[in-house]
Structures are given as structure tokens and as C-alpha cells.
């Protein structure tokens, strides 16, 4: 079953086209790496899949439906921007998420919190950038979501946090859970992806199975990425 179906998707902000005709199908249980430099359209695509942005034209189906209230209840979206209120404590942020999403699993979230080395009593304002990135991930993966959309989960954080985020994502993998992860830092994250899509100026210019691309090019996904965006 295709969890994501996108056909001829176009999105315009004012006079600028952020997406210029995108086609994409993602099957259940896949981990898709959405790769491209800043401004290539990754965030726009994720926002549309999450149901918080709207297409200018084209067709989008998520879990068999047009993105909207029903899909939002089953899709966990982690935007790149900080969306957790800083006056909260970690425990409040968890409670907030629990009140908001029926599929939130408090016990699972507490486990993840511990794995991520975070303390429930800490004020959010006292957390480092890397710790806030870990908390964002806990809030998303604490949900029983069928589709997880993560916008730049590795950017701007210290290497130990990157490592934890990577492991947290692996722990969250399930056969019936699809993940889309955008990044402009490929690095170690490439081992996580089974499919990759390279975006440039709102268009897909290279897509495929990560292993086939390695075989065909004799290069790592990161090397292909660097060469394509030179």
C-alpha cells in the first residue's frame, strides 16, 4: 500500500514556485530520505504532506486520504522550527502532546525520554539546542503514528545528539510505520534510508533505492549528494 501518493504537485508562494510538478509514491514501512539544499522545497513538501500547507495544484494523498484533520491524527510531523513553548517543563510538553493527540503513548514517551537522556523536571528553556531536538523527537515518536515526517532533525545539533536522534529513529522503526526525513546533512544518516529523493529548486532530479544508487554509482549517497549539488 502506498502511504504517500503525490502527483503533479505544484506550490507557489507569491511569484516563486517552491514545488514545480512533483510525483512521488512511498510504500508502507519505508524510510525515505528527502535530500536537497536549503530552499529546494523539502519543507514545503513535508508541510503539505502534514496537512499544514496546501498545494497550489496537483494531487496529494496521505494514508489514502487528502491531508486534513483525519490524516493529522495519524501523522506525526516535526517541523524544523522550535514549536515547544519555552515556559514549559519537559513533563508539561509531554502532557500537552498527550492532550492533543489521542495516539500518544505516555509510557512509550517516558522510555524514549530516558533513552534520550532527558529529565522530565527540566524547564524547556534550560535545554541545549541538541536536547530540544531530542525532545521534539520524543514528542513525535511517542505517538502511535503511521507516518512520521521529520524536517531537518539533524541540523544544528551536536554530534552526540545526532547519534541519539539516529538511534531513536531506528528504535521507532516498525513495519507499518513510514518515515520521511529531510536533511541537507547526509553523513551517517544515509544508513537509515532505504529510498532517497534528491530535490533541487522544487523538482526531483534523482530518486531511487539507496542500495541501488550505491551499486550503480560506486559511491555513497553523501558523495552523490555532494557531486550533484556542486
Amino acid at each position: 500500500m502506498d502511504v504517500i501518493e503525490v502527483r503533479a504537485l505544484r506550490k507557489r508562494y507569491g511569484r516563486t514556485w517552491a514545488l514545480r510538478g512533483l510525483d512521488l509514491q512511498v510504500e508502507e514501512g519505508r524510510v525515505l530520505g528527502l535530500l536537497g539544499p536549503n530552499g529546494s522545497g523539502k519543507s514545503t513538501l513535508l508541510r503539505i504532506l502534514a496537512g499544514v500547507g496546501h498545494p497550489t495544484s496537483g494531487e496529494v494523498r496521505v494514508l489514502g486520504q487528502a491531508p486534513g484533520r483525519a490524516t493529522k491524527a495519524r501523522v506525526a510531523f516535526v517541523p524544523e522550527v522550535e514549536h515547544i513553548y519555552r515556559w514549559m517543563r519537559v513533563a508539561d510538553a509531554l502532557k500537552f502532546q498527550e492532550n492533543f493527540f489521542a495516539d500518544f503513548q505516555p509510557a512509550r514517551a517516558r522510555e524514549l525520554l530516558e533513552f534520550m537522556g532527558l529529565d522530565q523536571a527540566s524547564p524547556v528553556s534550560s535545554l541545549s539546542k541538541g536536547q530540544r531536538a531530542r525532545l521534539k523527537l520524543v514528542l513525535a515518536l511517542g505517538r502511535d503514528a503511521r507516518l512520521v515526517l521529520l524536517d531537518e532533525p539533524f541540523s544544528g545539533i551536536d554530534p552526540p545528539s545526532r547519534e541519539r536522534v539516529l538511534q531513536g529513529l531506528l528504535m521507532a522503526y516498525r513495519e507499518d510505520r513510514t518515515m520521511v526525513i529531510s536533511t541537507h546533512l547526509v553523513g551517517e544518516a544515509e544508513k537509515l534510508f532505504d529510498r532517497v529523493v534528491f530535490l533541487s529548486r522544487g523538482e526531483i532530479f534523482l530518486a531511487g533505492e539507496a542500495e541501488e544508487l550505491r551499486q550503480r554509482h560506486g559511491k555513497s549517497i553523501e558523495q552523490i549528494f555532494r557531486e550533484e549539488y556542486r
Binding site: 528504535m171 522503526y173 544508513k191 537509515l192 534510508f193 542500495e211
Partner: peptide, 17 residues
């Protein structure tokens, strides 16, 4: 699939492959 995937830090689909 799960244990080697976590240990090797690769996608479980890769282990299955």
C-alpha cells in the same frame, strides 16, 4: 531484524535484504 539493525545502525529493511 531489529537487533542487528540497532547494533549496525542501519535500516531494518537493509538487514532483511
Amino acid at each position: 531484524l531489529r537487533d542487528p539493525a540497532l547494533e549496525l545502525e542501519v535500516n531494518p529493511n537493509t538487514v532483511q535484504h
